[in-house]
């Protein structure tokens, strides 16, 4: 096993994928706790589809993928939040509209230009080779910024997540928290998408939070547990994916499912013990 790990670490692209993946997983899980509790779980899914559309268009016209997709996804995030506040189109329907719409446009552009090639396939299901040097540094920089911002605004994020009305009514400085969360989520999704795959990235946001909530009952514990769990699952996932030669994104998601089941059982046993 040590031999396999040493062998993995001798490939620079794997080391990059490992570092980026762990950082992105941590960021995604931190934001995920808030998103899941605010019933915005599907925003991640919607945004990743938008990201796919943007990447497909960027590839077709040979534009820089990150430079195109980050602004587009950020814009979509704002639009989704706006629609959520607007009661005429319900939040979940709005997400479905935008995500399928973006996916459809992406597929059309792809089929009219390059056709479904390996790039497009990788955008959908992720690839461990996706992290080149530029995106490596961009990702690390973005993740550090996200983690720092999250820690700085942790208390306010909690307040807004728990009770938005109360926070808005009593606190002047909490109005931007929403926008901050949407913005950071959009960035995490675009950066993580090529490693994890557009169709799978939202698992990184939803699973760790949901898993931790099976066992822990305070916000702080759930947050810390989600971050650790997410990193551990990614490391195990990338290791399995290398040894058995299976796609990294799907493997990480399956590891997360296993973790969920374990935590679910622990939670059940705890409740039974209490009774």
């Amino acid at each position: 096993m040590i031999r396999i790990i040493a062998e993995m670490l001798s490939y620079p692209f794997l080391v990059r994928a490992l570092i980026c993946g762990v950082l992105l997983s941590v960021c995604a899980s931190l934001l995920g706790v808030s998103l899941v509790l605010k019933r915005y779980s599907m925003i991640g899914d919607g945004l990743s589809h938008v990201g796919f559309g943007a990447l497909a268009i960027a590839t077709a016209f040979h534009w820089a993928p990150l430079a195109v997709s980050i602004p587009v996804v950020v814009a979509a995030a704002f639009l989704l939040l706006r629609l959520n506040e607007n009661t005429k189109i319900k939040g979940d329907a709005a997400i479905a509209l935008i995500s399928t719409g973006a996916l459809a446009i992406g597929i059309l552009v792809v089929s009219l230009t390059t056709g479904v090639n390996i790039d497009i396939y990788n955008y959908m299901f992720g690839s461990v080779l996706a992290i080149d040097k530029t995106s490596f540094f961009v990702s690390i920089g973005a993740c550090v910024v996200i983690i720092v911002l999250f820690l700085l605004f942790y208390n306010r994020i909690f307040a807004v997540t728990f009770d938005e009305d109360f926070t808005r009514a009593t606190q002047a400085r909490s109005s931007g928290i929403h926008i901050l969360i949407a913005l950071l989520t959009a960035v995490v999704i675009v950066l993580g998408m090529r490693l994890m795959g557009a169709l799978l990235i939202s698992a990184l946001i939803i699973f760790p939070a949901l898993t931790s909530m099976r066992v822990f009952k305070s916000y702080k514990k759930v947050t810390v547990s989600a971050a650790i769990l997410s990193a551990v699952c990614f490391v195990i996932g990338i290791f399995c994916s290398y040894t058995i030669s299976i796609p990294v994104g799907a493997t990480v998601v399956v590891i997360n499912i296993i973790a969920f089941l374990i935590f679910f059982l622990i939670g059940k046993i705890r409740i039974r013990k209490q009774q």
């Binding site: 208390n155 909690f158 307040a159 728990f162 009593t170 009952k217 916000y219």
Partner: peptide, 16 residues
């Protein structure tokens, strides 16, 4: 089903 301790919630009132 919001996971939060009593202290966390009461403290959040002081954030203004």
């Amino acid at each position: 089903d919001f996971p939060a301790s009593v202290m966390e919630i009461v403290l959040s009132g002081t954030l203004n």
